[in-house]
Amino acid sequence: MTKDHRDEILFHTPGRHAEAYPYKILVAGRSRFTENDGLVTRRFHHHTLILTMSGRGLIEIAGQRFAAGAGSVVWLDTAMQYAHGCHAEADHWRYLWMSIDGHGLDAVFAFLRVGQSPVFSGSVTAEPLFEQAIGTLGHRSQTTDALSNAIVGQLIALLVAERGEQEEDSSERIQRLMRALRADIARNWQIEDMADISSLSASQLHRQFRQKTGTTPMDWMRHERMNLAKRLLTSSEAKISAVALSSGYADPYHFSRDFRRISGQSPSEFRRARGQ
């Protein structure tokens, strides 16, 4: 890495009382890449947080590439090999960064699924914390370890809050879709219809729905239809074809096939077994 890449780098060796604090900042600095610089491969043994100030960066981890736009925060577990540099669509990448250590960071990293999604949208409050980290390491004193702990704690709280809000938003989208499916269970639903209601792409919907329920949207709806069919079979004398239609099946044969596969009985056998 040339001098142009890294404008400033500051190291810190925690003091003898540092063990009293859960978090530590070991290194911090300011860096810059230009469009003429290639990707630089690195491997350290700390967690690293990167705040993009301007331009756009590219992070490569285990063959996957992630873009880092202005204002975003990237969390790297640098015990894994990674590469980073200026994005091909930008003329530079300028960022602040810090390498941190502390109790429970691996657990938080896993909880937030950072390995699968290392880029956070960031917050206006992140920049002052990064600047404070650099200033703290640049003017070390007896309070450096205490201040470092406070800075890292606030940054982790920001990232947890952001990912938590995304999780809550994702849950609400899935719940909204479930309500729509239950309200119009007989409709000829297509995955595109479900994606529109949940404001997700088809692939995002499939992934997030499986994360929340353990199954796919279509399988979940099929079981909901079977639950409705069972209620109709035991609470009415409607013909099997009518029950099928009310449960979203235009074809009684397909209805009977799915019913037997899920319940282990045909609709008629299910009804007779319950005295109907």
Rank of each mutant, 00 (worst) to 15 (best):
residue 58 L to N: 04
residue 46 H to G: 09
residue 49 L to D: 02
residue 180 A to E: 07
residue 40 V to K: 00
residue 190 Q to W: 08
residue 266 S to M: 04
residue 80 M to E: 10
residue 198 S to I: 08
residue 184 D to L: 10
residue 116 Q to N: 08
residue 268 S to P: 01
residue 264 G to D: 00
residue 226 M to I: 15
residue 231 R to E: 06
residue 171 S to Q: 14
residue 255 F to R: 07
residue 179 R to P: 07
residue 200 L to H: 02
residue 59 I to A: 03
residue 226 M to Y: 03
residue 28 A to E: 07
residue 132 Q to Y: 02
residue 88 A to F: 11
residue 215 T to I: 09
residue 172 E to W: 09
residue 171 S to W: 13
residue 106 D to H: 02
residue 269 E to L: 05
residue 249 Y to N: 03
residue 33 F to Q: 01
residue 17 H to T: 15
residue 122 G to N: 01
residue 201 S to C: 11
residue 213 T to D: 07
residue 189 W to D: 10
residue 177 L to I: 12
residue 150 A to V: 00
residue 37 D to V: 00
residue 231 R to Y: 13
residue 142 Q to S: 08
residue 190 Q to L: 15
residue 42 R to T: 14
residue 37 D to E: 09
residue 255 F to C: 01
residue 260 R to W: 08
residue 244 A to D: 02
residue 186 A to R: 04
residue 87 H to C: 08
residue 154 Q to A: 09
residue 36 N to C: 07
residue 46 H to T: 11
residue 163 R to E: 00
residue 244 A to I: 04
residue 54 S to N: 09
residue 135 G to K: 06
residue 79 A to Y: 10
residue 187 R to I: 13
residue 158 L to S: 00
residue 7 D to K: 14
residue 186 A to C: 01
residue 77 D to T: 03
residue 272 R to G: 05
residue 31 S to V: 13
residue 21 Y to Q: 04
residue 11 F to S: 10
residue 29 G to L: 01
residue 5 H to C: 13
residue 34 T to F: 02
residue 228 L to A: 05
residue 68 A to S: 09
residue 258 D to H: 07
residue 154 Q to K: 02
residue 262 I to S: 01
residue 228 L to W: 09
residue 226 M to K: 09
residue 80 M to D: 07
residue 47 H to P: 11
residue 32 R to G: 12
residue 8 E to R: 15
residue 17 H to G: 14
residue 179 R to H: 14
residue 51 L to K: 05
residue 153 G to C: 06
residue 89 E to N: 10
residue 67 A to S: 03
residue 7 D to R: 15
residue 57 G to V: 06
residue 247 S to D: 07
residue 119 V to Y: 04
residue 253 Y to S: 03
residue 1 M to N: 02
residue 272 R to M: 14
residue 160 V to S: 05
residue 252 P to W: 04
residue 109 F to R: 03
residue 139 H to W: 14
residue 60 E to M: 06
residue 134 I to D: 05
residue 144 T to L: 06
residue 107 A to M: 10
residue 134 I to E: 10
residue 59 I to Q: 09
residue 207 R to G: 05
residue 25 I to G: 01
residue 125 T to L: 13
residue 148 S to D: 05
residue 225 R to T: 14
residue 121 S to P: 01
residue 165 E to W: 10
residue 68 A to Q: 00
residue 116 Q to M: 13
residue 63 G to E: 00
residue 245 L to Y: 09
residue 71 G to E: 06
residue 158 L to V: 12
residue 89 E to K: 12
residue 41 T to S: 10
residue 150 A to D: 04
residue 34 T to G: 04
residue 246 S to V: 10
residue 271 R to C: 00
residue 141 S to I: 03
residue 101 D to R: 12
residue 64 Q to L: 14
residue 25 I to S: 06
residue 27 V to W: 07
residue 39 L to T: 02
residue 267 P to S: 06
residue 201 S to K: 08
residue 181 L to M: 15
residue 235 S to A: 15
residue 147 L to P: 01
residue 173 R to T: 13
residue 35 E to F: 00
residue 166 Q to V: 15
residue 168 E to I: 11
residue 168 E to S: 12
residue 214 G to F: 08
residue 80 M to Q: 12
residue 265 Q to L: 04
residue 182 R to G: 12
residue 271 R to L: 07
residue 198 S to C: 04
residue 83 A to G: 05
residue 274 R to S: 07
residue 59 I to N: 02
residue 3 K to T: 14
residue 66 F to R: 07
